[in-house]
Nucleic acid binder design. Structure first.
Length: 581
RNA sequence: GGUCCCGUGGUGAAGUGGAGUUCACGCCGGCCUGUCAAGCCGGAGGUCGCGGGUUCGAACCCCGUCGGGACCGCCA
């Protein structure tokens, strides 16, 4: 398959079984070692690896020259086998070297040493960075993941449909990239933040099962796990329950994981949003480590300690064995962190060698309370116990953050712990100005059927048929069963404080087609960059993207973005403001 | 929009107020017949990101600015 008119083999594939064969390989000079004029070794590299070529007629090749070597595979001399090299038992002898292209010395070594080179330099010369084994591996893992996802979706009768990149601007959600219209000066397209609108319309259109490996664009600040452009497996299904969607997506995720790692993960476990918050304090729990939040509210029901008395929710975590390493400075740091999030304070207690509690507040806690505390948190000498008393949301959030700060390993480390987080609340928080609830996900999520009666009386308690997929504490994606009936949609809009007229104005173009027979449907989308990064052992998605942007949104290789020419602006009917001074 | 960290030959580092910026890798030249990110000898290569300030004196301290990174906000 890899043979061409110029080569017979890939260099990294040559083994003892090829001994005696005349072969041609093509690639780059990884290194050259000269021993006088009669003998030189040239390591030739292609994307499969490196093979040693023995040259005895003094060819002047330098690092990264592109060469073609024709020679005979032979066993290495006794004592010169290189066990660190997959091809280390053989070498190419009687070599004829053709220089296909000379090369400037590269700005950084094309090997693992470049892992220490400043990322900006790697990005400036990304074509050289990608020549390295690490990037080759990452991009090939990514290709395998894409391919496995396609196969898994097709095996389940999903139809790949491409949706447009030039779309109307939509009222809510992430900031959009805008593209000026030449034919309608003053009007703009938006680049899609997701194919949400189109995929739901494809359900109305009877496609039944849609998927797309879709490019999505959001003009929000970049991070280790966020780029302007990213890829999602985007899917939507008709006539389904939540379980149908979770099963279909799980199949794609497991196929992708198996393709990347060689191992199929076990069935993905599930946890409700409420349990996730209660036990881990976050809606994207990292299940790889313990330190779970422990309920203490009732244990301090009649406490004398003012900070705990009457608190709606008291919880604690046990940072096992961390008492010694956490000195006063670090504990103050944790307290500051807790206060920054919004807690009134943070109670810490160290378990002493005799099982007593060392803490500024120990004297306020009765002997019974101290004993119960130690029992519930399984405290043993050397442990550090942290307690927060506040309303339920704050207690969970603060301890969830501290738990991650204190215990969370790098995202790629250890086992892969996939988890579906289900039953997200339909509304999260309230609009500061109107006092109306804000949608937890988006306003088209289907409310949980058991909670419909609470809609008007206790909206914040209404759960949604909305779910997230989480891997090692990273949110991979989310989805929901949608609302396909207008009366239910109206109730949700009303709860959000959106009038019928406003709803029609803002979302009419989306909802009106539903009047022509929208089937019950639901779907999901998950980020392929994030999944690939974790499966490739990277903690930054830039490492699995061929040409990513920097944190400020620029590309050091192409210098994008660049100012337009005056004639481009004129054609588009656009005048720019002077740069801020 | 905010908090914190980093900018020293091509690359990675050292130098935190005082002599001529130091080292390794790479690069160039020479030597070398079994090395393997070879070895030995020699050489070139720097506006210490940029601008201003403090000082007798600044790579080093201060202010600003640009670039990069981590995080918060933001990402329905």
């Amino acid at each position: 398959m890899s043979a061409t008119s110029m080569r017979t083999h890939m260099s990294g594939e040559l083994r003892s079984e090829h001994i005696g064969q005349a072969v041609s390989v093509c690639g780059w000079v990884a290194s050259r070692r000269e021993h006088g004029t009669q003998l030189a070794f040239v390591d030739l590299r292609d994307h499969t690896g490196v093979v040693q070529c023995v040259v005895d007629n003094g060819v002047d090749v330098r690092s990264e020259f592109v060469i073609r070597v024709t020679g005979v595979v032979r066993a290495r001399l006794e004592g010169t086998v290189n066990k660190n090299l997959p091809t280390g038992e053989i070498e190419l002898g009687e070599c004829v070297v053709e220089i296909l292209r000379t090369a400037e010395p590269p700005p950084f070594p094309i090997d693992a040493r470049a892992d220490k080179v400043e990322e900006n330099t790697r990005l400036q010369h990304r074509y050289l960075d990608i020549r390295r084994e690490r990037m080759q591996r990452n991009l090939r893992v990514r290709a395998k993941v894409n391919s496995a996802i396609r196969r898994a979706m097709e095996a389940q009768d999903f139809v790949e449909v491409e949706t447009p990149m030039l779309v109307p601007s939509t009222p809510e959600g992430a900031r959009e990239f805008l593209v000026p219209s030449r034919k309608e000066p003053g009007s703009f397209y938006a680049l899609p933040q997701s194919p949400q609108l189109f995929k739901q319309l494809l359900m109305v259109a009877g496609i039944d099962r849609y998927y797309q490996i879709a490019r999505c664009l959001r003009d929000e600040d970049l991070r280790a796990d966020r780029q302007y452009e990213f890829m999602q497996l985007d899917a939507e299904m008709s006539f389904v329950s939540q379980d149908d969607v979770l099963e279909a997506i799980s199949e794609a995720v497991m196929a992708a994981a198996e393709a990347a790692t060689g191992e199929r993960p076990p069935a993905i476990e599930r946890i409700t949003w409420h349990d996730a918050m209660n036990r881990f304090g976050v809606d994207k729990p990292d299940l790889r480590f313990g330190m779970e939040l422990t309920e203490l509210t009732d244990a301090f029901a009649s406490t004398e300690f003012k900070a705990f008395a009457g608190a709606a929710s008291i919880k604690g975590i046990n940072a096992s064995g961390k008492a010694e390493e956490m000195g006063r400075n670090k504990l103050d740091g944790l307290t500051d962190r807790a206060k920054k999030i919004g807690a009134k304070g943070l109670v810490w207690l160290k378990v002493g060698a005799d099982g007593s509690l060392d803490s500024p507040v120990a004297k306020f806690l009765s002997a019974d309370e101290q004993a119960e505390l130690l029992r519930r948190l399984a405290g043993v000498p050397g442990d550090l116990i942290l307690i927060v008393a506040d309303d339920w949301e704050m207690t969970c959030e603060v301890l969830g953050t501290l738990r991650n700060d204190l215990g969370r390993p790098p995202v790629w480390q250890g086992p892969y712990r996939y988890v579906w987080v289900t039953e997200f609340p339909l509304f999260i928080g309230r609009n500061k100005e109107t006092g109306k609830p804000k949608p937890g996900h988006h306003p088209f999520c289907r409310p949980h059927p058991d909670d419909l009666d609470k809609f008007e009386t206790d909206p914040m308690a209404v759960r949604a048929l909305a779910y997230d997929l989480v891997l090692n504490g990273w949110e991979l994606g989310s989805g929901s069963i949608r609302i396909h009936e207008s009366d239910l949609q109206r109730r949700v809009f009303n709860a959000l404080g959106i009038s019928d007229e406003e709803a029609d104005k803002k979302f009419g173009f989306f909802l009106r087609p539903f009047e022509y027979g929208a089937p019950p449907h639901g779907g999901f989308a998950f980020g392929i960059d994030r999944l690939v990064a974790i499966l490739a052992g990277e903690e930054n998605i830039r490492e699995v993207i061929a040409f990513p942007k920097t944190q400020s949104g620029s590309d050091p290789m192409t210098n994008a973005p660049t100012p337009p020419s005056p004639s481009q602006l004129a054609e588009l009917g656009i005048r720019t403001l002077p740069a801020k001074v």
